[in-house]
Design a binder for these strands. Structure first.
Lengths: 341, 341
DNA sequence: TTGTAGGCGTTATCAT
DNA sequence: ATGATAACGCCTACAA
């Protein structure tokens, strides 16, 4: 069933059918009615492939991300707001998830290109030379999310991982903690693995607190990895740190679970602070003190930015930083007035 | 940059270029090399729109679901396995999420049709007459997930919500509970809202336990709604039930959080059992006893089924039921030997 | 092994 | 207000 069939059945030319479909020009009311009835009758839908081929525009944005499941993850909120913005502007989303198989990124980028998406939103993780090459020659505009990469002239929106991590650590220090551990992310992940670690170290430095490597482990974002990292720290030293900064709420939850399982009280014996403010965090036992980043704003900003570029508007600023906020709940204890044992 | 340009630059005809792209026929090694170099050089990718238009096949499956970020997590596992199956068979996914705006389903179904997806995987929630009409006339095969609807001749894969809910409730009863409440789902959701409730009631019935309406509230799947439902139950009666069945892990978590916040011990004072076995459940405090349904299997099954239909294989069975399993953790207390107070 | 030409379903340009 | 026709970029007979 195509436009030709509809034309025949309504006894008009295909141009006229096209006109009623797109409201692109005047069509006499009677004819319009006639055509519309046939369309409804036949359950006809125009073929976007043909339309987009001829218009050289798909009204589709490719969104590339790297996460296990779209679950509670911090991404899902951003993606929802991206979806909203794009939908409001008549764009569709083509979602691709590498699930941490970063090599697949290029494969998806190719598919995007073949499918002729009008632009791409890229939740970055690692950034390699190959990324550089590919992005440099990419035929449509890209907006990067979550990772700063100044070599390339593509705009990006990030949250200030360094400052936020420093703030989290400072909070721990304010509360009297001096023995502080960290459960970090993979160092290939610049934002989470590197910047948050740097922020942590900076806070320690400025307060003249030495970093104890026995207190420092790395996870892969999963709940289990947080659990395992905490276990390693426990095994590393007979005396646990009084506080842990987990660079991800999920890892924080994994860590707390380990502690509770071992009969170690949180926050009475060990305080834990997270990062992300994922949905469950407020409902966890104990409710998690963490860094809340405005994921909705990030998605909104990135999508809007891309749309502007697509509209040919000049985008002068290339760097956008979303705000964060420390949300204090119950997983960190103030030990300033603790009687020394 | 199109096939014609490549042809010109490599000094061959477009058919030859097409042949090297698709390996569809013999091409002399020298010519092939020549063309391949130009392709690489020009960073050329074939236009799928044109290709799919002419082949009348997009190798794309539309996946329609209805979840808000949070809830996605029970879906996300299924979706991952769907993605795997489809990818292995050369299919792409087009994901659409109504986020509980069920009216948008039809809009997306239309888009799928316009984009000429080869088939659709439909995570059903509510099923109305309009669905009936639309599905009846839908031009490509549909496989339904999570909801049984026999009027239509479309295959579906579900988990046995009724039996699983009954099993969960029976477990509570076995452990000596007689005062049992439920936090249910919206009744428009046949599987979660109705079937799980029916299973609950069936278990009560067979053990001659009366259902106490003060113990029964309904949530909307969110953590908050679980919290609020538990609060209502608390307000309804001076004496809390000894156990609660929440038809969703997230609502169970919300409920537990409410109880803990009020100083009510879980499971010592109130036991809670969930449904879904979402990622965090094992790491919650206390670890959540729940029904684990094989979401991966569901996704795998549904995708495979659709592929079979697409391949013209006769599918005789229309109904597939995935297995479930009760996973016992620490949120339910055995009160059989409790000293009566 | 390689090239030519028609058609996939639209929209857009130009007549009428 | 309506219709004929040439693209859009590709694949696939059919020819050479």
């Amino acid at each position: 069933m195509n436009i030709k069939d509809i034309a025949k059945l309504s006894d008009v030319s295909i141009s006229t059918v096209s006109r009623v479909i797109n409201n692109s020009a005047k069509v006499s009311p009677e004819v319009r009615k006639r055509v519309e009835i046939v369309i409804k009758e036949m359950n006809y839908r125009p073929n976007s492939l043909a339309r987009e081929l001829q218009q050289k525009k798909t009204n589709t944005i490719g969104v590339l991300m790297s996460a296990e499941g779209l679950d509670l993850s911090s991404l899902s909120e951003s993606i929802n707001s991206i979806a909203d913005v794009l939908k409001d502007n008549g764009f569709n989303i083509m979602l691709a998830n590498t699930r941490f198989h970063h090599d697949q990124e290029f494969e998806f980028l190719n598919i995007f290109q073949e499918k002729r998406v009008d632009g791409v939103l890229y939740f970055a993780s690692t950034f390699t030379d190959k990324h550089y090459d590919v992005f440099k020659n990419y035929p449509v505009p890209i907006v990067m999310i979550g990772q700063q990469y100044e070599l390339l002239d593509i705009p990006y929106v990030i949250h200030d991982d360094f400052s936020a991590a420093r703030a989290a650590t400072n909070f721990l220090i304010e509360k009297g903690h001096k023995e502080i551990g960290i459960i970090g992310g993979p160092i290939e992940d610049e934002a989470v693995g590197v910047q948050r670690l740097r922020g942590f170290e900076a806070a320690l430095n400025i307060h003249n607190i030495a970093k104890n490597d026995d207190y420092c482990e790395i996870g892969d974002f999963s709940l289990t990895s947080g659990y395992e990292a905490m276990k390693k720290i426990h095994l590393n030293c007979k005396l646990l740190p009084t506080a842990i900064f987990a660079v991800t709420d999920f890892m924080a939850i994994g860590a707390i679970r380990y502690l509770v399982e071992k009969g170690i009280k949180v926050p009475e014996q060990v305080s834990v602070i997270g990062f992300d403010d994922v949905g469950v965090s407020a409902f966890y036992n104990p409710p998690l003190t963490t860094i809340h980043s405005d994921k909705k704003a990030i998605g909104h900003l990135a999508a809007t930015l891309l749309l502007q570029i697509l509209n040919g508007q000049e985008v002068t600023t290339k760097k956008f930083i979303a705000s964060y906020e420390l949300v204090v709940r119950e997983s960190v204890l103030d030990i300033n007035n603790r009687i020394k044992s």
